[in-house]
Design a protein around this nucleic acid. Sequence first.
DNA 1: CTTTTCTGACTTGTATGCAAGATTTGTCGC
DNA 2: GCGACAAATCTTGCATACAAGTCAGAAAAG
Lengths: 248, 248
Amino acid sequence: MQDLSPQQNAPNGIDEAIVSGILSARIRPGTRLSENQLASLFSVSRTRVREAMMRLEQRGIVKVSPRRGWFVVEPSAEEAIMVYAARRVIEAGLLGSMDRLTESGRDTLHAHLTEEKLAIAAGDRQRLTCLMGDFHIRIAELAGNAILVEILRDLTARTILISLLYQSDFHAMQSHLGHCRIVAAMEEGDFLKAAALSVEHLDEVETGLDLSRRPDPLADLRRSLSLPPQSAAPRTPPTTKPQTRTGE
Amino acid sequence: MQDLSPQQNAPNGIDEAIVSGILSARIRPGTRLSENQLASLFSVSRTRVREAMMRLEQRGIVKVSPRRGWFVVEPSAEEAIMVYAARRVIEAGLLGSMDRLTESGRDTLHAHLTEEKLAIAAGDRQRLTCLMGDFHIRIAELAGNAILVEILRDLTARTILISLLYQSDFHAMQSHLGHCRIVAAMEEGDFLKAAALSVEHLDEVETGLDLSRRPDPLADLRRSLSLPPQSAAPRTPPTTKPQTRTGE
DNA sequence: CTTTTCTGACTTGTATGCAAGATTTGTCGC
DNA sequence: GCGACAAATCTTGCATACAAGTCAGAAAAG
């Protein structure tokens, strides 16, 4: 909708490219990020790539394994729980601290919900993933606090990685309805209700996770060979119905 | 009390040294941080210093002025308002989401309040500044969410910088009492009350700021010459009572 | 004396080179 | 065929060299 944050530092394209890749679920957790490859991709030296990686590490998005390489984080179950808890705290606090919804704010949210509907209708999974995460960021933007927007953006990125790891199946419609309910409460001016709905919504999503599932170390290879994803019962033949995975 | 965060990355001493310097108000906003000086101070090359600076920039603690140098941030009035708003949202949300106070948690908080009292009695300003900020971090630690702890730590650092810029005078006792009230509410098990008190406490501190004051570009020189700090009425002779400034 | 210009000593920005460790792969012995 | 060993080839870690920009102060012009 609007481009990169206005007063925010725009360090270089590398950071945002990676984050954007994660936000749209094009980059999976555990993906290896080679300094050399990124350097030639962006036509810069390793120095700048490393600086970008340092920043992303600070944001909890990548990790370095010493002398082995940089990897997109694979949040543990404990981290996943913390991320959702943090999001509940921040988003509920944010909504609870709001007291009015401006005209343009209402329009922004409606436009967003319409986009969600369109993406669902079109079955555009990548776009949908991105939109589902963006919804919460839009709300933070409405509250006008750039600091919290930035924090939520990083938490959203981690949320998407979590869902890619632990979410076996998900109904996009359910989340969309949750978003609609939150917007409705905001339009009523009942921000405490909106906050409660937000907590409920995040609980719902978190409950849908299977946190007991161990991250599959062979996921990449599996996908490359077009093998079915790891299932709880290894002997079970693959389900014929294609799974719909989204960031939320 | 307990040392560096356990599972957290301990990148190197540079980051923490600077943050610790800010947390104890030994480093003032606007302080120049020369890559070369830091490099020789820590006996490393500029490379590692730069990496540390990049991380600190990501955390909103330092800024780079291109080809001029690195500086500890001097938050603007708008940023100051955002920082306090963010802290209210997070801390209130945190307390509101808690439902019980463990024995050891109670002990930790009591020990902290005792330390605050001791620092006040001893008039140890630096220690007091550090403690005042740490109080809120302790609470986040009690809630057990490492992500929010980290976020609050950075916000606390910025808070201290803000208070150094905009806080002309402050009574440490007032904040200490605020903390005591919050702990009391927690002991009663009334976490909603604690959350409300926390918001009230932060409001109180924010109200005590003079955000209309422009940051004084001559502050460093002034301090070097032992001149009185910039006052609202320039002709007024310096007050004889020494001002007590703390991070909160 | 004031103003302008220029030079030189700083700063960070970026690339590159080399060292050290981890992983893989090829090879040998059995 | 199979396991152990070794070397080749990757990876990041870190220091250094040089490019480029900024600023202060000297020197020259008015």
